[in-house]
C-alpha cells in the first residue's frame, strides 16, 4: 500500500502523514529522513519534526539519497519525508541524469518491502513566478516525478490547512 500526501509549505501534510502511519496499527514504524541538516534553519526544521514524532514509535533512518539500497524492515510502516529533498539530493548531489529513476526505484523498493509506505510530497508548482532556466528545468523534473508517484500510489491526498482532500481513495488497508 502506497499513500502519497502533498501540500504547500506549512499545510500540515507531515502531521497527516504521521497520523496515517499511527492509524495503520502497524507497530514497526520507520521514518525515512531525507534532509541533509545544513544551517540553523535546517536544524530547527529537523528538531520540529523530531518533536512531532516523539513518542509515536518511529525509528529514524537517514537516507539523503540511494533509497533503493536502504535496508528497511519487512512489513513495517514507512514514512518518507520528503520527495523533494530526496530528489534534490539525487539531482544536485549526484547527477541529474537518472535522478528521477533512482527515486522511483527507491520508492518501488519501499512499497515492496513495507506493508504501508507513506510518501510526503511538496506542492511547489503554483506560485506563478518566473525562474531561471536551470530552476525551471528542475521544477519540471520535480513536477513529472510528483505525477509519477501519484500514478503509482494507491491513495493520493492534498492537505490544506491541516485538512486532507482526497484525490484518490485507496482500497481498505
Amino acid at each position: 500500500m502506497l499513500l502519497f500526501i502533498t501540500g504547500g509549505s506549512g499545510s500540515g501534510k507531515s502531521a497527516y502523514a504521521e497520523d496515517r502511519v499511527t492509524a495503520s496499527g502497524i507497530a514497526c514504524r520507520a521514518y525515512i529522513a531525507t534532509m541533509e541538516p545544513f544551517g540553523a534553519e535546517g536544524q530547527a526544521r529537523i528538531a520540529r519534526h523530531r518533536k512531532m514524532r516523539a513518542g509515536k514509535g518511529f525509528e529514524t533512518l537517514e537516507c539523503p539519497r540511494d533509497l533503493a539500497n536502504l535496508p528497511v524492515p519487512v512489513g513495517c510502516a514507512a514514512l518518507l519525508e520528503d520527495l523533494t529533498n530526496l530528489f534534490a539530493n539525487e539531482w544536485f548531489g549526484s547527477s541529474q541524469k537518472g535522478a528521477a529513476e533512482r527515486v522511483l526505484r527507491g520508492l518501488a523498493h519501499l512499497r515492496d518491502t513495507a506493508a504501508l509506505t507513506v510518501v510526503v510530497g511538496n506542492d511547489l508548482f503554483a506560485d506563478g513566478m518566473d525562474y531561471d532556466a536551470e530552476t525551471l528545468c528542475y521544477l519540471h523534473a520535480l513536477a513529472d516525478l510528483h505525477r509519477e508517484v501519484a500514478a503509482m500510489a494507491d491513495g493520493v491526498y492534498e492537505v490544506v490547512c491541516g485538512i486532507p482532500i482526497c484525490l484518490r481513495k485507496e482500497a481498505g488497508l
Partner: peptide, 8 residues
C-alpha cells in the same frame, strides 16, 4: 491567500 505552493 494560499502562499505555500511555490518554490522555497
Amino acid at each position: 491567500d494560499e502562499v505555500g505552493c511555490g518554490v522555497v
